[in-house]
């Protein structure tokens, strides 16, 4: 079962952090179809957060068609996000590592690498939209 954690300094709304952690687990295959999410009471008792935060996160995941609530039993994963792309992760990670090594060799520090990646990512996404 997945265990949630909250970063109160991240600036990301707590419910969104829960949503992102479930999506991440679905993408990486740590949560699979049929797996149960922790009950609202369990999450609340562990993280000391407002129950509505968890309910809101679960509702959003339900709305996205990723989980389904079975009344009186719990909330279950009905679709994963990993699909076929998971097998492509390995080679892509290798490519990225090679690229990172190249960037470091060229003298880029962490901040420049992140900035370059984000900038390129955004400009490519925009081209995609246009």
């Amino acid at each position: 079962m997945i265990e949630f954690h909250l970063d109160s300094r991240s600036g990301v709304a707590p419910y969104l952090q829960v949503v992102q952690q479930v999506r991440q687990a679905l993408r990486l295959g740590t949560l699979l179809e049929g797996d149960q999410l922790p009950t609202v009471k369990d999450v609340v008792a562990r993280l000391a957060i407002n129950p509505n935060t968890v309910l809101k996160a679960y509702k959003e995941l339900e709305h996205a068609g990723l989980v389904a609530a079975r009344p009186g039993i719990g909330t279950f994963v009905i679709r994963t996000l990993s699909d076929a792309s998971l097998s492509a992760h390995g080679p892509l990670r290798q490519d990225l590592k090679r690229w990172l090594a190249k960037a470091r060799k060229a003298g880029l520090d962490d901040e420049s690498i992140e900035a370059l990646f984000r900038d390129t990512f955004l400009s490519v996404s925009e081209e995609g939209v246009a």
């Binding site: 609340v44 008792a45 993280l47 000391a48 957060i49 407002n50 129950p51």
Partner: peptide, 14 residues
């Protein structure tokens, strides 16, 4: 403090 709020939130949920 954390333990106190955990119990409190559990009561709200339950």
């Amino acid at each position: 403090r954390r333990e106190f709020l955990q119990v409190l939130m559990e009561a709200v949920a339950e």
